[in-house]
Design a protein around this nucleic acid. Structure first.
Lengths: 100, 100
DNA sequence: TTTACACATAACTTGACAGTTATATATCTA
DNA sequence: TAGATATATAACTGTCAAGTTATGTGTAAA
């Protein structure tokens, strides 16, 4: 699963958002989401396969951590577009359009 | 279809990449991709529904254009992560890990 | 006014994903 | 050692996306 595919699912984005606050046990993520525990576990697996999170054992819990580095791939793809929408020409086109 | 879902598919990302160079007729996109004409047409529809492209008639052709503004939604989601991976603390963690 | 062209839509197949419940595995605790 | 807890996996179902071929629709050209 590529990072792009991983981000397509809202629950997975929410998981990443939660992990931005630091390491979290799986159970805490389960509480925060509106789906079942196995559902969360499956999303965590896909996120791991995408390299977007990592996990380590802590007793009977598993602590998940954000691997933000993998998101640079998405960021890199987006970069040239960022230039596009900040373009003065682009802004002008939008402006002319809105006047119709 | 959300922008996130739209970007999950590589052919659609390629279409957007091509449209970064300016308006293109559908046929030109068909030539560039490795899938059938109806396949491309369906992707274009989804991209339209996601607001990522727009189309206008030009004789018997249809010219597609990038609507980069919609990508700001993705960019906005990504923004706080961008901070995360440029963090000095984050860099330090990566460094310590690589030493193991 | 046919024929050709560009594109969209219809209809269908296949496979993957997201969700569920039930169960297995491992660790902690009484 | 016997529960109790935390998490993962198995097994299953329903939905949907992505691809295909075949066909429809509108515009250009002969």
């Amino acid at each position: 699963m590529t990072p792009f595919e991983a981000l397509a699912e809202p629950n997975r984005r929410q998981i990443l958002d939660l992990l931005r606050g630091g390491e979290r046990p799986a159970g805490e993520l389960v509480e925060a989401l509106a789906i079942s525990q196995p559902g969360v576990s499956k999303h965590l697996r896909l996120l791991r396969e995408a390299g977007l999170v990592s996990a380590r054992a802590d007793g009977q819990r598993r602590l998940y951590r954000l691997e933000a580095a993998r998101l640079t791939e998405v960021d890199a793809w987006l970069a040239p577009y960022r230039q596009a929408w900040t373009d003065r020409l682009y802004a002008l086109e939008r402006h002319l359009e809105s006047e119709q």
